[in-house]
């Protein structure tokens, strides 16, 4: 379970996140929904222990990230905004490298690799160097890397970007499986159809603040609109040109 409370972060004069608070519960898929620059990635980086926050706190399974980021990171599986693969290593070597940081070795590591192979159908690319992989194959390696150690919390930053329909469907199935296993899945997106199809809980963000949160159905009802896209526009006060209406 991830609890974000009053998190704020500025980069120089730019206030990327002003005040963000929400819960991402176990056995649920929680989505941060927001336009580009709304503070989603900064929030996810703060959760992943990659940023020093200016204010607020993040708790992962009861551990305060700022106090001991390494301990909190052991409970997280992170799928960052870029795949970041090593082109001279094979998929198996990638998984072994990251698995070892989580204490996996020997037969345990082999078993974990076999499991993600089964889950993501990696057999064709398992012993191939990642150079020249398609976007879908790269996604699979990055996702396998994030879930190899069976973390209780999985954080994914815009996981469907650049993927074709079949890979999006595969990703969706895996995320549902992870939810079924009782894991906390937190992702960010600005693709309405994906958010509607995936999310149990949606956190709408704009200009570094949370504007609304709830299930997709609740948010649509609260906005009195017919779909999530319209509800997002209304609840975040966004104009069609991307500017936010000031109340």
């Amino acid at each position: 379970m991830i609890i974000v409370k009053d998190v704020a972060k500025a980069y120089g004069d730019v206030q990327a996140v002003k005040s963000v608070s929400f819960h991402a519960d176990d056995a649920k898929i929680t989505t941060l929904l927001g336009a580009n620059g709304s503070g989603k990635t900064t929030t996810l980086r703060a959760i992943s222990g990659l940023l020093h926050m200016d204010a607020g706190s993040v708790t992962v399974d009861g551990m305060i990230v700022a106090d001991d980021p390494v301990k909190a990171q052991a409970s997280l599986g992170v799928f960052p905004d870029s795949f970041g693969l090593y082109t001279r290593l094979t998929t198996r070597e990638h998984l072994a490298y990251f698995g070892e940081f989580h204490g996996l070795s020997g037969t345990k590591l082999d078993a974990a690799i076999t499991e993600v192979d089964k889950m993501l159908n990696l057999s064709e690319i398992l012993d191939r160097r990642t150079e020249g992989f398609s976007q879908g194959q790269r996604m699979k390696v990055a996702l396998a890397r994030a879930i190899l150690h069976r973390p209780s919390n999985i954080v994914l930053d815009e996981p469907t970007r650049g993927l074709d329909v079949m890979n999006i469907r595969l990703l969706r199935t895996i995320l549902f499986d992870l939810r079924k296993e009782g894991r906390c899945v937190l992702l960010s997106s600005h693709v309405m159809a994906e958010v509607s199809a995936l999310s149990d809980h949606v956190v709408m963000m704009a200009e570094g603040v949370v504007c609304a949160e709830g299930s997709p159905a609740e948010l649509i009802a609260r906005a009195g609109e017919v779909n999530l896209e319209e509800a997002f526009v209304k609840l975040t006060g966004q104009e069609d040109n991307g500017e936010r209406k000031v109340a």
């Binding site: 992943s48 990659l50 990171q73 795949f83 970041g84 693969l85 090593y86 990251f98 940081f101």
Partner: peptide, 14 residues
């Protein structure tokens, strides 16, 4: 430059 620093730093390693 290859953006592989971020996934590395997100691991439980100092």
């Amino acid at each position: 430059e290859r953006h592989s620093m971020q996934p590395l730093l997100a691991q439980p390693v100092t």
